[in-house]
């Protein structure tokens, strides 16, 4: 008892409720973790899609003689919007199609040229027309453009996720500020007595900010503990979009791909927000005293 009052002369353990503030900070921490998960997950998907979008255009050349392929490559080389054009190895193509076509050694497969564009907004129809003029029957497909648009969407979603994180941080600041102000009002007479006895602003603000930091840190840890299972569930659901098979066992989940550093930073950030906000609120309040 004597020890606790020595450390807590303002009685902040009672004045600064541990339950409500910690619960609210835990909710903020959970949202922050989910925000990080969304941002990092979308970033990874977007990156994968972006890589796919680089091969934005494929050109199929029926009757793929060496001459016709060379002719098509020659036309593509003259187009400024084309960054790169490479014929797909016929053996690799046959391997890719085997699940659908089976072993069909006599089936005449078209030659395929992967085209990387300098700019995804380039007019693909024009490229197709130029190639078809030189190589009759050549067909151009621009499936990668949709992937590019998806990648752009992913970038936008990522931006929204980071904006949501900032908003969560601001709400956490507001929650701590309200709790600190309520505790100040509850203990204003005691604060005035300490001030009159010669306590400095740093000493008084330190009492509040220490308490706020402990509560926010605890809330942050609780939020992370709740977030991690949800985070794994989302990671598992997102696996197919990354070209992986959905894991059935915990060991199959993408443990290494989780943003552990971000997760670890959430309670630390919560504690820092608690400390800094309480310091600011109390010091502004104390500035009114002589």
């Amino acid at each position: 008892m004597a020890g606790s009052t020595r450390r807590d002369p303002l009685g902040l353990r009672r004045a600064m409720s541990d339950r409500l503030l910690q619960a609210l900070i835990a909710a903020m921490a959970l949202l922050a973790c989910l925000g990080f998960a969304a941002a990092r997950g979308v970033e990874a998907l977007g990156e994968r899609w972006r890589q796919g979008a680089e091969a934005a255009v494929t050109i199929q050349v029926p009757d793929p003689t060496r001459t016709r392929i060379a002719l098509a490559l020659g036309v593509l080389a003259t187009l400024p919007e084309v960054a790169d054009a490479n014929p797909v190895d016929p053996d690799r193509l046959a391997e890719l199609l085997r699940p659908w076509l089976g072993e069909q050694p006599n089936l005449a497969l078209p030659g395929v040229i992967e085209v990387r564009l300098r700019n995804l907004d380039a007019d693909v129809a024009l490229i197709g027309d130029r190639v078809a003029e030189a190589v009759p029957g050549a067909v151009t497909e621009a499936h990668g453009l949709w992937v590019g648009r998806l990648a752009a969407l992913a970038t936008a979603v990522q931006g929204v996720a980071y904006a949501a994180l900032v908003l969560v941080g601001l709400i956490a600041v507001a929650v701590v500020a309200v709790a600190t102000r309520a505790a100040l009002i509850a203990r204003q007479d005691s604060v005035a007595v300490l001030h009159q006895l010669g306590a400095t602003d740093r000493e008084i603000a330190g009492r509040f900010s220490g308490r706020a930091m402990i509560l926010a840190l605890g809330g942050g840890v609780a939020g992370v503990l709740v977030a991690v299972p949800a985070f794994f569930l989302l990671a598992r659901l997102a696996q197919p979009f990354g070209g992986e098979v959905m894991a059935e066992a915990l060991s199959g989940l993408p443990w290494a791909s989780l943003p552990w550093r971000d997760i670890a930073m959430v309670p630390v950030a919560a504690g820092a927000i608690g400390w800094l906000t309480a310091q600011a609120v109390v010091r502004v309040w104390l500035a009114r005293l002589p």
């Binding site: 009052t5 002369p9 303002l10 005691s190 007595v193 009159q196």
Partner: peptide
């Protein structure tokens, strides 16, 4: 007087 109500006389 302004004694702090949540503290003992000693404190």
């Amino acid at each position: 007087l302004r004694l702090l109500p949540h503290l003992s006389t000693f404190d």
